[in-house]
Amino acid sequence: MTNVLLILVSGIFVQNFIFSRFLGICPFLGVSKSIPTAVGMGVAVTFVMAMASAITYVVQYAILTPLHLEYLQTIAFILVIATLVQLVEMIIKKVSPTLYNALGVYLPLITTNCAVLGAALLNIQNGYNFIESVAFGVAGALGFTLAIILFAGVRDKLRISAIPEAMQGFPIALVTAGLMSIAFLGFSGMLNV
């Protein structure tokens, strides 16, 4: 239990997927223009990552390892993730067309969000058991959600600030992301998982 808790805290703060592992930067920059969209993206990614962590664990230890097909890991995991993303897309389209339009192309792009594949692969690499794997996936996704919501908040403020013309848009966003990453460095070394 302590272990799971440690994984959660570590995944959200210490080894944040965005700020210390630098995974999943594409949606982080792409969908962080407004807080509600960022929340929607965070929820979608959380769902996909939690499910992906659970299913890839089963795929790895029930199918790939017994058949000595570990080399199929990447393609098999991507298959799982792509399926999940399709599922999420259908659900969001049904439940909230507004969010569906706001997320746009970034929704199917969760498939190629390296944070999701990263979580699945790191689970296996770290030798986590099933519970720990799901916890790691959820923690990573919550960390992602935290990062993207914080960033969307900052960008909301940036939009009404006086920014030199050359720095407007993505330049200032990237600088901000870098500064936030440095801030998150403050957590490094607090936990050893």
Binding site: I63, L64, L69, L72, I75, L79, T83, Q86, I91
Partner: peptide, 19 residues
């Protein structure tokens, strides 16, 4: 490997079709 991936694809695909 071909069969395993094929089977996985089939399972996931039918799941998606259902969804």
């Amino acid at each position: 490997p071909v069969l395993v991936l094929g089977a996985m694809g089939l399972v996931f695909g039918s799941g998606l079709a259902l969804a």
